[in-house]
Design a protein around this nucleic acid. Structure first.
Lengths: 191, 191
DNA sequence: TCAGGCATGTAAGGCGTTACATGATTCT
DNA sequence: AGAATCATGTAACGCCTTACATGCCTGA
Protein backbone atom coordinates (compact mmCIF):
# COMPACT_ATOMS: atom_id res chain seq x y z
CA UNK A 1 0.00 0.00 0.00
CA UNK A 2 1.36 3.34 -1.10
CA UNK A 3 -0.13 6.81 -1.45
CA UNK A 4 -1.34 7.93 -4.85
CA UNK A 5 1.71 10.12 -5.19
CA UNK A 6 3.79 6.99 -4.71
CA UNK A 7 2.16 5.37 -7.72
CA UNK A 8 2.65 8.52 -9.78
CA UNK A 9 6.36 8.35 -8.96
CA UNK A 10 6.51 4.63 -9.76
CA UNK A 11 4.79 5.32 -13.09
CA UNK A 12 7.43 7.89 -13.96
CA UNK A 13 10.35 5.76 -12.82
CA UNK A 14 9.01 2.74 -14.71
CA UNK A 15 9.61 4.74 -17.89
CA UNK A 16 13.01 6.13 -17.00
CA UNK A 17 15.20 6.02 -13.87
CA UNK A 18 15.55 9.54 -12.46
CA UNK A 19 16.71 11.66 -9.57
CA UNK A 20 14.17 13.38 -7.32
CA UNK A 21 14.94 16.63 -9.05
CA UNK A 22 14.32 15.15 -12.48
CA UNK A 23 11.03 13.68 -11.26
CA UNK A 24 9.73 17.09 -10.24
CA UNK A 25 10.65 18.38 -13.70
CA UNK A 26 9.11 15.38 -15.47
CA UNK A 27 5.96 15.75 -13.38
CA UNK A 28 5.03 18.70 -15.54
CA UNK A 29 4.86 17.18 -19.01
CA UNK A 30 2.76 15.20 -19.68
CA UNK A 31 1.94 13.77 -16.24
CA UNK A 32 1.57 17.26 -14.83
CA UNK A 33 -1.40 17.84 -17.10
CA UNK A 34 -3.41 15.78 -14.65
CA UNK A 35 -1.11 15.29 -11.66
CA UNK A 36 1.38 17.54 -9.92
CA UNK A 37 4.21 16.89 -7.51
CA UNK A 38 6.65 19.35 -5.98
CA UNK A 39 10.06 18.27 -4.82
CA UNK A 40 9.04 19.04 -1.26
CA UNK A 41 6.74 16.07 -1.46
CA UNK A 42 8.80 13.88 -3.75
CA UNK A 43 11.86 13.42 -1.52
CA UNK A 44 9.94 12.17 1.53
CA UNK A 45 7.85 9.91 -0.69
CA UNK A 46 10.94 8.45 -2.35
CA UNK A 47 12.34 7.44 1.02
CA UNK A 48 9.02 5.81 1.91
CA UNK A 49 9.08 3.88 -1.39
CA UNK A 50 12.64 2.89 -0.58
CA UNK A 51 11.62 1.54 2.84
CA UNK A 52 8.85 -0.44 1.18
CA UNK A 53 11.35 -1.90 -1.28
CA UNK A 54 9.61 -0.54 -4.38
CA UNK A 55 12.55 1.55 -5.56
CA UNK A 56 16.32 1.41 -5.29
CA UNK A 57 19.01 3.95 -6.11
CA UNK A 58 22.61 4.27 -7.14
CA UNK A 59 24.67 7.22 -5.96
CA UNK A 60 26.97 9.36 -8.05
CA UNK A 61 28.92 12.43 -6.97
CA UNK A 62 26.52 15.18 -7.97
CA UNK A 63 26.77 18.91 -7.59
CA UNK A 64 26.05 20.48 -4.23
CA UNK A 65 26.85 19.30 -0.73
CA UNK A 66 24.98 15.98 -1.04
CA UNK A 67 25.45 13.01 -3.31
CA UNK A 68 23.09 12.51 -6.24
CA UNK A 69 20.69 9.55 -6.20
CA UNK A 70 19.30 7.98 -9.36
CA UNK A 71 16.22 5.94 -8.50
CA UNK A 72 14.70 3.04 -10.40
CA UNK A 73 11.77 0.70 -9.81
CA UNK A 74 12.45 -2.75 -8.35
CA UNK A 75 10.66 -5.90 -9.46
CA UNK A 76 8.45 -5.63 -6.36
CA UNK A 77 7.68 -2.02 -7.32
CA UNK A 78 6.64 -3.03 -10.82
CA UNK A 79 4.37 -5.71 -9.40
CA UNK A 80 2.84 -3.23 -6.96
CA UNK A 81 2.26 -0.69 -9.73
CA UNK A 82 0.69 -3.23 -12.08
CA UNK A 83 -1.67 -4.40 -9.35
CA UNK A 84 -2.68 -0.87 -8.39
CA UNK A 85 -3.49 0.07 -12.01
CA UNK A 86 -6.09 -2.66 -12.15
CA UNK A 87 -7.60 -1.92 -8.72
CA UNK A 88 -10.80 0.17 -8.95
CA UNK A 89 -10.33 3.62 -7.42
CA UNK A 90 -12.40 4.99 -4.58
CA UNK A 91 -15.23 7.08 -6.07
CA UNK A 92 -13.79 10.53 -6.67
CA UNK A 93 -14.77 13.18 -4.14
CA UNK A 94 -15.62 16.71 -5.19
CA UNK A 95 -13.33 17.87 -7.92
CA UNK A 96 -13.06 21.49 -6.76
CA UNK A 97 -13.26 23.23 -10.11
CA UNK A 98 -13.20 26.92 -9.28
CA UNK A 99 -14.77 28.01 -12.59
CA UNK A 100 -17.74 25.73 -11.92
CA UNK A 101 -18.15 27.30 -8.50
CA UNK A 102 -18.12 30.71 -10.15
CA UNK A 103 -20.68 29.53 -12.69
CA UNK A 104 -22.84 28.27 -9.84
CA UNK A 105 -22.79 31.74 -8.28
CA UNK A 106 -22.70 33.85 -11.44
CA UNK A 107 -26.32 34.99 -11.03
CA UNK A 108 -25.13 37.19 -8.13
CA UNK A 109 -22.49 38.97 -10.20
CA UNK A 110 -22.24 41.75 -12.75
CA UNK A 111 -23.15 40.11 -16.05
CA UNK A 112 -20.82 41.83 -18.53
CA UNK A 113 -17.91 41.28 -16.14
CA UNK A 114 -18.83 37.61 -15.74
CA UNK A 115 -19.16 37.23 -19.53
CA UNK A 116 -15.69 38.73 -19.90
CA UNK A 117 -14.27 36.32 -17.33
CA UNK A 118 -15.62 33.24 -19.08
CA UNK A 119 -14.60 34.60 -22.45
CA UNK A 120 -11.10 35.21 -21.16
CA UNK A 121 -10.71 31.62 -20.02
CA UNK A 122 -11.20 30.38 -23.59
CA UNK A 123 -7.74 31.43 -24.74
CA UNK A 124 -6.11 29.66 -21.79
CA UNK A 125 -7.76 26.42 -22.78
CA UNK A 126 -6.98 26.91 -26.43
CA UNK A 127 -3.32 27.12 -25.48
CA UNK A 128 -3.60 23.92 -23.50
CA UNK A 129 -5.38 22.22 -26.37
CA UNK A 130 -2.62 23.26 -28.76
CA UNK A 131 0.02 21.85 -26.40
CA UNK A 132 -1.85 18.55 -26.08
CA UNK A 133 -2.29 18.27 -29.83
CA UNK A 134 1.41 18.91 -30.42
CA UNK A 135 2.36 16.24 -27.86
CA UNK A 136 -0.19 13.87 -29.39
CA UNK A 137 1.39 14.33 -32.83
CA UNK A 138 4.84 13.80 -31.38
CA UNK A 139 3.81 10.53 -29.73
CA UNK A 140 2.10 9.22 -32.87
CA UNK A 141 5.03 10.12 -35.11
CA UNK A 142 7.21 7.81 -33.00
CA UNK A 143 4.93 4.93 -34.06
CA UNK A 144 4.49 5.45 -37.76
CA UNK A 145 1.65 7.94 -37.41
CA UNK A 146 -0.58 5.50 -35.57
CA UNK A 147 -1.30 4.74 -31.90
CA UNK A 148 1.46 3.02 -29.90
CA UNK A 149 0.96 -0.62 -28.85
CA UNK A 150 -0.71 -0.94 -25.45
CA UNK A 151 2.39 -2.48 -23.89
CA UNK A 152 4.52 0.55 -24.76
CA UNK A 153 4.93 3.41 -22.26
CA UNK A 154 3.83 5.79 -25.01
CA UNK A 155 0.39 4.23 -24.90
CA UNK A 156 -0.02 5.84 -21.46
CA UNK A 157 0.84 9.25 -22.90
CA UNK A 158 -1.37 8.64 -25.89
CA UNK A 159 -4.35 7.68 -23.73
CA UNK A 160 -4.05 10.60 -21.31
CA UNK A 161 -3.46 13.10 -24.11
CA UNK A 162 -6.52 11.82 -25.90
CA UNK A 163 -8.52 12.48 -22.79
CA UNK A 164 -7.01 15.95 -22.46
CA UNK A 165 -7.82 16.86 -26.05
CA UNK A 166 -11.46 15.81 -25.73
CA UNK A 167 -11.71 17.52 -22.38
CA UNK A 168 -10.33 20.86 -23.54
CA UNK A 169 -12.59 20.88 -26.59
CA UNK A 170 -15.60 20.19 -24.41
CA UNK A 171 -14.59 22.88 -21.94
CA UNK A 172 -13.99 25.48 -24.63
CA UNK A 173 -17.48 24.77 -25.96
CA UNK A 174 -18.95 25.24 -22.50
CA UNK A 175 -17.02 28.47 -21.87
CA UNK A 176 -18.25 29.88 -25.19
CA UNK A 177 -21.81 28.93 -24.28
CA UNK A 178 -21.46 30.62 -20.86
CA UNK A 179 -20.01 33.79 -22.35
CA UNK A 180 -22.83 33.87 -24.90
CA UNK A 181 -25.56 33.28 -22.34
CA UNK A 182 -24.21 35.99 -20.05
CA UNK A 183 -24.00 38.61 -22.80
CA UNK A 184 -27.17 37.61 -24.67
CA UNK A 185 -29.40 38.79 -21.81
CA UNK A 186 -27.75 42.19 -22.07
CA UNK A 187 -28.76 42.51 -25.73
CA UNK A 188 -32.39 41.65 -25.01
CA UNK A 189 -32.54 44.30 -22.28
CA UNK A 190 -30.95 46.87 -24.62
CA UNK A 191 -32.73 49.74 -26.50
CA UNK B 1 -10.58 37.67 1.26
CA UNK B 2 -12.05 34.29 2.09
CA UNK B 3 -11.09 30.73 1.27
CA UNK B 4 -12.76 29.01 -1.66
CA UNK B 5 -14.86 26.98 0.74
CA UNK B 6 -16.11 30.30 2.13
CA UNK B 7 -17.39 31.30 -1.30
CA UNK B 8 -19.01 27.91 -1.76
CA UNK B 9 -20.88 28.46 1.50
CA UNK B 10 -21.84 32.01 0.53
CA UNK B 11 -23.14 30.69 -2.81
CA UNK B 12 -25.34 28.18 -0.98
CA UNK B 13 -26.59 30.67 1.59
CA UNK B 14 -27.33 33.25 -1.11
CA UNK B 15 -29.95 30.83 -2.40
CA UNK B 16 -31.42 29.82 0.93
CA UNK B 17 -30.55 30.59 4.57
CA UNK B 18 -29.49 27.38 6.30
CA UNK B 19 -27.94 25.84 9.38
CA UNK B 20 -24.46 24.34 9.22
CA UNK B 21 -26.03 20.92 9.22
CA UNK B 22 -28.28 21.77 6.29
CA UNK B 23 -25.31 23.18 4.39
CA UNK B 24 -23.45 19.90 4.63
CA UNK B 25 -26.54 18.12 3.27
CA UNK B 26 -27.05 20.69 0.50
CA UNK B 27 -23.39 20.45 -0.46
CA UNK B 28 -24.17 17.14 -2.08
CA UNK B 29 -26.71 18.08 -4.73
CA UNK B 30 -25.98 19.78 -7.06
CA UNK B 31 -22.99 21.68 -5.67
CA UNK B 32 -21.45 18.43 -4.47
CA UNK B 33 -21.12 17.30 -8.06
CA UNK B 34 -18.10 19.57 -8.29
CA UNK B 35 -17.44 20.67 -4.72
CA UNK B 36 -17.65 18.91 -1.38
CA UNK B 37 -17.76 20.14 2.20
CA UNK B 38 -18.07 18.15 5.41
CA UNK B 39 -19.53 19.64 8.53
CA UNK B 40 -16.14 19.35 10.21
CA UNK B 41 -14.97 22.06 7.87
CA UNK B 42 -18.20 24.01 7.58
CA UNK B 43 -18.59 25.05 11.23
CA UNK B 44 -15.13 26.61 11.56
CA UNK B 45 -15.57 28.34 8.19
CA UNK B 46 -18.95 29.74 9.22
CA UNK B 47 -17.44 31.37 12.29
CA UNK B 48 -14.71 32.89 10.11
CA UNK B 49 -17.35 34.26 7.72
CA UNK B 50 -19.17 35.63 10.75
CA UNK B 51 -16.03 37.42 11.98
CA UNK B 52 -15.60 38.90 8.50
CA UNK B 53 -19.20 40.13 8.57
CA UNK B 54 -20.25 38.16 5.48
CA UNK B 55 -22.92 36.11 7.24
CA UNK B 56 -25.23 36.58 10.22
CA UNK B 57 -27.43 34.14 12.10
CA UNK B 58 -30.56 33.92 14.16
CA UNK B 59 -30.83 31.36 16.92
CA UNK B 60 -33.75 29.10 17.61
CA UNK B 61 -34.05 26.41 20.26
CA UNK B 62 -32.96 23.36 18.29
CA UNK B 63 -32.55 19.78 19.38
CA UNK B 64 -29.47 18.74 21.26
CA UNK B 65 -27.43 20.54 23.90
CA UNK B 66 -26.69 23.61 21.76
CA UNK B 67 -28.96 26.16 20.16
CA UNK B 68 -29.60 25.99 16.43
CA UNK B 69 -28.21 28.74 14.19
CA UNK B 70 -29.76 29.70 10.86
CA UNK B 71 -27.23 31.60 8.79
CA UNK B 72 -27.86 34.05 5.96
CA UNK B 73 -25.64 36.23 3.79
CA UNK B 74 -25.26 39.91 4.70
CA UNK B 75 -25.14 42.73 2.15
CA UNK B 76 -21.35 42.79 2.55
CA UNK B 77 -21.28 39.04 1.94
CA UNK B 78 -23.28 39.39 -1.28
CA UNK B 79 -20.90 42.10 -2.48
CA UNK B 80 -17.90 39.93 -1.64
CA UNK B 81 -19.41 36.95 -3.47
CA UNK B 82 -20.30 38.98 -6.56
CA UNK B 83 -16.77 40.41 -6.74
CA UNK B 84 -15.16 37.01 -6.33
CA UNK B 85 -17.23 35.45 -9.14
CA UNK B 86 -15.81 37.95 -11.58
CA UNK B 87 -12.21 37.64 -10.37
CA UNK B 88 -10.11 35.34 -12.59
CA UNK B 89 -9.02 32.22 -10.71
CA UNK B 90 -5.42 31.17 -10.21
CA UNK B 91 -4.53 28.69 -12.97
CA UNK B 92 -5.65 25.26 -11.73
CA UNK B 93 -2.94 22.99 -10.43
CA UNK B 94 -2.91 19.29 -11.19
CA UNK B 95 -6.39 17.88 -11.07
CA UNK B 96 -5.43 14.52 -9.57
CA UNK B 97 -7.68 12.27 -11.61
CA UNK B 98 -6.85 8.75 -10.47
CA UNK B 99 -8.20 7.07 -13.60
CA UNK B 100 -5.91 9.20 -15.74
CA UNK B 101 -2.96 8.16 -13.59
CA UNK B 102 -3.98 4.54 -14.10
CA UNK B 103 -4.27 5.12 -17.85
CA UNK B 104 -0.81 6.64 -17.81
CA UNK B 105 0.56 3.48 -16.22
CA UNK B 106 -1.70 0.91 -17.87
CA UNK B 107 1.08 -0.41 -20.13
CA UNK B 108 2.60 -2.04 -17.02
CA UNK B 109 -0.59 -3.94 -16.10
CA UNK B 110 -2.44 -7.03 -17.12
CA UNK B 111 -4.41 -6.00 -20.20
CA UNK B 112 -7.68 -7.92 -19.79
CA UNK B 113 -7.87 -6.77 -16.15
CA UNK B 114 -7.22 -3.17 -17.17
CA UNK B 115 -9.85 -3.40 -19.92
CA UNK B 116 -12.32 -4.70 -17.33
CA UNK B 117 -11.51 -1.82 -14.99
CA UNK B 118 -12.12 0.86 -17.61
CA UNK B 119 -15.22 -0.92 -18.81
CA UNK B 120 -16.52 -1.10 -15.26
CA UNK B 121 -16.18 2.65 -14.81
CA UNK B 122 -18.60 3.28 -17.68
CA UNK B 123 -21.68 2.32 -15.67
CA UNK B 124 -20.67 4.63 -12.82
CA UNK B 125 -20.52 7.56 -15.20
CA UNK B 126 -23.74 6.56 -16.89
CA UNK B 127 -25.44 6.74 -13.50
CA UNK B 128 -23.99 10.18 -12.93
CA UNK B 129 -25.08 11.29 -16.38
CA UNK B 130 -28.62 10.09 -15.71
CA UNK B 131 -28.70 12.02 -12.43
CA UNK B 132 -27.45 15.18 -14.12
CA UNK B 133 -29.99 14.84 -16.92
CA UNK B 134 -32.83 14.38 -14.43
CA UNK B 135 -31.73 17.47 -12.49
CA UNK B 136 -31.35 19.39 -15.74
CA UNK B 137 -34.91 18.51 -16.73
CA UNK B 138 -36.18 19.50 -13.29
CA UNK B 139 -34.50 22.90 -13.51
CA UNK B 140 -35.79 23.58 -17.02
CA UNK B 141 -39.33 22.55 -16.13
CA UNK B 142 -39.37 25.31 -13.52
CA UNK B 143 -38.87 27.82 -16.34
CA UNK B 144 -41.31 26.69 -18.99
CA UNK B 145 -38.97 24.08 -20.48
CA UNK B 146 -36.30 26.63 -21.36
CA UNK B 147 -33.16 27.90 -19.64
CA UNK B 148 -33.61 30.10 -16.55
CA UNK B 149 -32.76 33.82 -16.80
CA UNK B 150 -29.15 34.56 -15.90
CA UNK B 151 -30.13 36.52 -12.80
CA UNK B 152 -31.99 33.55 -11.30
CA UNK B 153 -30.18 31.15 -8.94
CA UNK B 154 -31.33 28.31 -11.17
CA UNK B 155 -29.08 29.62 -13.91
CA UNK B 156 -26.14 28.55 -11.75
CA UNK B 157 -27.52 25.02 -11.50
CA UNK B 158 -28.35 25.00 -15.19
CA UNK B 159 -24.83 26.09 -16.16
CA UNK B 160 -23.01 23.62 -13.92
CA UNK B 161 -25.30 20.75 -14.91
CA UNK B 162 -24.71 21.52 -18.55
CA UNK B 163 -21.01 21.21 -17.93
CA UNK B 164 -21.51 17.96 -16.05
CA UNK B 165 -23.60 16.44 -18.83
CA UNK B 166 -21.05 17.27 -21.53
CA UNK B 167 -18.25 16.10 -19.28
CA UNK B 168 -19.78 12.72 -18.48
CA UNK B 169 -20.56 12.07 -22.14
CA UNK B 170 -17.01 12.88 -23.09
CA UNK B 171 -15.65 10.69 -20.32
CA UNK B 172 -17.87 7.75 -21.21
CA UNK B 173 -16.61 8.01 -24.78
CA UNK B 174 -13.03 7.96 -23.57
CA UNK B 175 -13.60 5.01 -21.22
CA UNK B 176 -15.15 3.03 -24.06
CA UNK B 177 -12.20 3.84 -26.27
CA UNK B 178 -9.79 2.73 -23.54
CA UNK B 179 -11.63 -0.52 -22.92
CA UNK B 180 -11.66 -1.21 -26.66
CA UNK B 181 -7.99 -0.43 -27.13
CA UNK B 182 -6.98 -2.64 -24.21
CA UNK B 183 -9.00 -5.62 -25.43
CA UNK B 184 -8.34 -5.18 -29.18
CA UNK B 185 -4.67 -6.05 -28.78
CA UNK B 186 -5.73 -9.33 -27.20
CA UNK B 187 -7.77 -10.25 -30.24
CA UNK B 188 -4.86 -9.55 -32.61
CA UNK B 189 -2.58 -11.77 -30.54
CA UNK B 190 -5.22 -14.52 -30.47
CA UNK B 191 -5.33 -17.74 -32.56
C1' DT C 1 30.45 38.35 -11.40
C1' DC C 2 26.00 37.11 -11.36
C1' DA C 3 21.97 34.52 -12.85
C1' DG C 4 20.09 30.18 -13.62
C1' DG C 5 20.01 25.28 -13.57
C1' DC C 6 21.18 21.00 -10.99
C1' DA C 7 20.53 18.67 -6.71
C1' DT C 8 18.84 17.40 -1.93
C1' DG C 9 16.69 17.97 2.00
C1' DT C 10 13.41 20.18 6.16
C1' DA C 11 9.73 23.01 8.19
C1' DA C 12 5.57 25.69 8.54
C1' DG C 13 1.08 26.21 7.48
C1' DG C 14 -3.35 25.52 4.90
C1' DC C 15 -6.91 22.61 3.44
C1' DG C 16 -9.67 18.52 3.89
C1' DT C 17 -11.33 14.02 5.84
C1' DT C 18 -12.44 11.14 9.55
C1' DA C 19 -13.35 10.30 14.07
C1' DC C 20 -14.65 11.77 18.74
C1' DA C 21 -18.18 13.88 21.71
C1' DT C 22 -22.94 15.28 23.10
C1' DG C 23 -27.90 15.02 23.18
C1' DA C 24 -32.97 15.71 21.79
C1' DT C 25 -36.79 14.06 18.86
C1' DT C 26 -39.11 10.81 15.82
C1' DC C 27 -39.96 6.59 13.61
C1' DT C 28 -39.95 1.38 13.73
C1' DA D 1 -36.02 -0.29 23.14
C1' DG D 2 -33.18 1.00 19.57
C1' DA D 3 -31.95 3.21 15.32
C1' DA D 4 -32.02 7.24 12.44
C1' DT D 5 -32.13 12.10 11.87
C1' DC D 6 -31.26 16.72 13.37
C1' DA D 7 -27.73 19.62 15.24
C1' DT D 8 -23.17 21.61 16.81
C1' DG D 9 -18.76 21.53 17.82
C1' DT D 10 -13.38 19.78 18.42
C1' DA D 11 -9.24 16.96 17.50
C1' DA D 12 -6.10 14.13 14.99
C1' DC D 13 -4.13 13.10 10.97
C1' DG D 14 -2.83 13.22 6.03
C1' DC D 15 -1.79 15.59 1.81
C1' DC D 16 0.01 19.45 -0.56
C1' DT D 17 2.21 23.97 -1.31
C1' DT D 18 5.53 27.30 -0.16
C1' DA D 19 9.42 28.81 1.89
C1' DC D 20 13.87 28.05 4.05
C1' DA D 21 18.57 26.16 3.65
C1' DT D 22 22.81 24.65 1.18
C1' DG D 23 26.13 24.68 -2.54
C1' DC D 24 28.31 23.36 -7.13
C1' DC D 25 28.75 24.16 -12.11
C1' DT D 26 27.95 26.57 -16.49
C1' DG D 27 27.10 30.26 -19.49
C1' DA D 28 26.30 35.31 -20.36
Amino acid sequence: MTSRLGYAILALLARLPSTGYELSARARRPLGYFWTAQHGQIYPELSRLLDAGFVSFTTSPGPGPRHKKVYSVTAAGMRELAEWVVRPPAPARGDRDEMLLKAYACWTADQPAAAALFDDQISRHQERLARYLADWQAVQSRHGGGPPPVTHPDFGSHATLRFGIDYERQRIGWLRWMADALSAEKRLAGP
